[in-house]
Amino acid sequence: MNMPVIGLGTFRLKDQVVIDSVTNGLDVGYRHIDTAQIYGNEAEVGQAIATSGISRNDLYITTKIWTENLSRDKLIPSLKESLNKLKVDQLDLTLIHWPSPNDALPVAEYVAALAQAKAQGLTKEIGVSNFTISQMQQAINTVGASEIATNQIELHPFLQNQKVVEFARQHGIHITAYMPLAYGKVMEDAVLKQIAATHGTTPAQVSLAWLLQQGFAVIPSSTKRENLISNLKADQIKLSDGEMQAITKLDRAERLVSPDFGPKWD
């Protein structure tokens, strides 16, 4: 199954909150669920998936390998633990969540280990997340661009990451946008509000539509059923060239996720 362009993010959602979000999400039609080892919710996500009654073949499940598990000896065992928690035999996509802090481990080591996990059948596809241009190039040198299913990066109207996007496009690497609603900041923006009013939709839907029209996948998260439904309908909105350009002008390099262990951004 190819990655559905609208997925359900689970960052910061824990315990019953994440069970409810995923349960509701699956119920209203989401088929792409995104989690990560560091979120501490893989078991709950797995529980929600197992009780949903939806066939495994109809779901696209992504997890991400945490920085402490990047070394050659830890990556595959940690992924097997994730599979166990998620109650599945194979993931659809496994990403390196963040490059090794301060490049303590070479990109080649952990990308090769991830490719090995794919060869063992633990995951159908592999990819990266929060990779800079230089790190993407190192990953390409290790496994080839065609093996990298996506680079999942922070992307929204206020942070458009154009250099990274351009490099990825040149090499045929797909982009997944996380934090696509900028922690809800899109709801307050005058330009997005105006475009939303024209379409009779919400600024959140407009922001998602803007990303989708550029060919990106999006993984918004929500705990409210009505927002889950509304986000899922974003691909029904068609923005004009003028509207697309107006949103592109909102870029202010406003990065919301920049931990101290993160890479030196392009």
Rank of each mutant, 00 (worst) to 15 (best):
H174E: 02
L122A: 11
L155A: 05
A139K: 08
A139N: 04
V165I: 14
H171A: 03
Q162R: 15
E166R: 14
I126P: 15
I140R: 13
Q137D: 10
R169A: 14
V143F: 12
G144H: 07
A108L: 02
F167M: 08
K124V: 01
I126K: 15
N161L: 04
A112H: 09
A139C: 04
I140A: 06
Q137N: 07
K118M: 12
G144V: 01
Q152K: 09
Y110E: 06
V165D: 04
T123Q: 12
F158H: 11
Q120D: 15
E109W: 03
G172Q: 10
A117D: 06
N141K: 10
L159Q: 13
K163F: 01
Q120C: 10
E166L: 12
E125Q: 15
E125I: 00
Y178I: 00
A115H: 13
E166Q: 15
Q138L: 06
T176M: 09
T142C: 05
E147M: 14
A117V: 04
G172M: 11
Q138K: 14
E154G: 05
Q120W: 10
M136Q: 15
V164A: 14
L155G: 06
A145H: 06
L114R: 08
Y178N: 04
I175Q: 06
I153Q: 06
I153F: 04
Q138R: 12
G172F: 11
A139G: 03
Y110R: 09
I133W: 12
A108V: 00
T142D: 06
A149W: 02
Q170R: 14
T142W: 08
V128E: 09
A149F: 06
S134C: 00
A168P: 05
T132K: 14
A108D: 04
I173R: 11
N151D: 13
R169P: 01
A115F: 04
A113I: 01
A149K: 14
F131P: 02
L155Y: 10
E109I: 00
E147F: 07
Q135I: 00
G127N: 12
A139F: 03
Q162T: 03
A119L: 13
T176R: 11
A113L: 09
Q152M: 11
Q170H: 12
Q116P: 05
N141S: 03
H156D: 05
Q116Y: 07
I173W: 06
I133H: 13
T176G: 08
M179Y: 04
A149G: 02
H171E: 02
A145M: 08
T142E: 10
Q152R: 10
I140S: 07
L159M: 12
T132W: 11
G127Q: 13
V164Y: 03
Y178P: 04
A149R: 13
